[in-house]
């Protein structure tokens, strides 16, 4: 159950592109054609499925406060979490390089279709973001971390596939000249993000993972509630 919940939550509710804006750069740059978008999306799923669990292990056994306990009691109070950025990015960069070499050797067909996208991925914010969110959301076990990696990757895949399909069609529309290309893509992505917000109610009753944005929105709602209460008072008087 926990797995199913995390799976759908990472794909729809906390979608990498529409909810947190990670991986926007490659999302905008590589979404002109459906075929290339599929290639990049597949590569992202692949790399995230490897790096998120790996970084989870790193975080759990090396970086967290007290994580070095397995080395001996005298190491128990070390806290290396300030090193997590550098460790995560080094893992990602090496893994991407390694994956590239392995795929080239054993699956040349896959390599040819992913080829140019693999090196790009090392600097894709979605990959590092996945690991950092994994850390800040305190994902509890290795299999959950794997699940999180795969499902966030699928979320990215879905987003880039959708925008590529829309951009292929929009070429035949009469878009105002200054908005052509980048501008209209931004606005469509915004509208799609609004659409994806409707998934937010899908998982109520789960753990409330509040992003900063929703906290701000909530404060606003509270303000509105106060407003309403004041109005009601005035009316009564």
């Amino acid at each position: 159950m926990e797995h199913i919940e995390l799976f759908f939550k990472s794909i729809f509710v906390d979608n990498m592109v529409f909810a947190t804006f990670l991986g926007m750069c490659s999302y905008l740059a590589v979404s002109k054609k459906v075929s290339t978008a599929v290639g990049l999306g597949a590569a992202v799923i692949f790399v995230m499925a490897i790096t998120v669990p790996l970084n989870w292990l790193l975080d759990q056994y090396i970086l967290q406060e007290g994580a070095l306990k397995w080395l001996g009691e005298e190491y128990a109070d070390y806290d290396l979490s300030f090193l997590s950025f550098i460790m995560f990015i080094a893992t990602i960069a090496t893994m991407v390089q390694l994956v590239e070499i392995i795929v080239e050797k054993f699956a040349p067909a896959l390599y040819n279709s992913l080829g140019i996208f693999l090196p790009l991925i090392a600097v894709n914010c979605a990959i590092l973001g996945g690991s950092l969110f994994m850390q800040s959301r305190e994902i509890a076990s290795l299999d959950l971390a794997f699940n999180y990696g795969v499902s966030s990757g699928i979320g990215f895949f879905l987003a880039i596939l959708a925008i590529a399909a829309i951009r292929e069609k929009i070429r035949y529309s009469n878009v105002p000249a200054p908005l052509r290309g980048l501008g209209i893509t931004f606005i469509i992505t915004g509208l799609m993000a609004i659409g994806f917000m409707s998934f937010g109610g899908m998982l109520t009753g789960g753990d409330e993972e509040e992003t900063t944005e929703t906290v701000v929105a909530q404060v606003d709602v509270e303000k509105d509630a106060k407003d309403l209460a004041n109005n009601a008072k005035e009316i009564l008087e």
Binding site: F18, A19, T20, F21, P176, P178, L179, L182, G183, I184, F186, I187, T189, G190, L191, A193, I194, M197, E213, V216, A217, D220
Partner: peptide, 15 residues
Amino acid sequence: LLAPMALITVGIIIW
């Protein structure tokens, strides 16, 4: 304040 409006704002700046 919601996330999607950031995209639309940037879109308008580009416009």
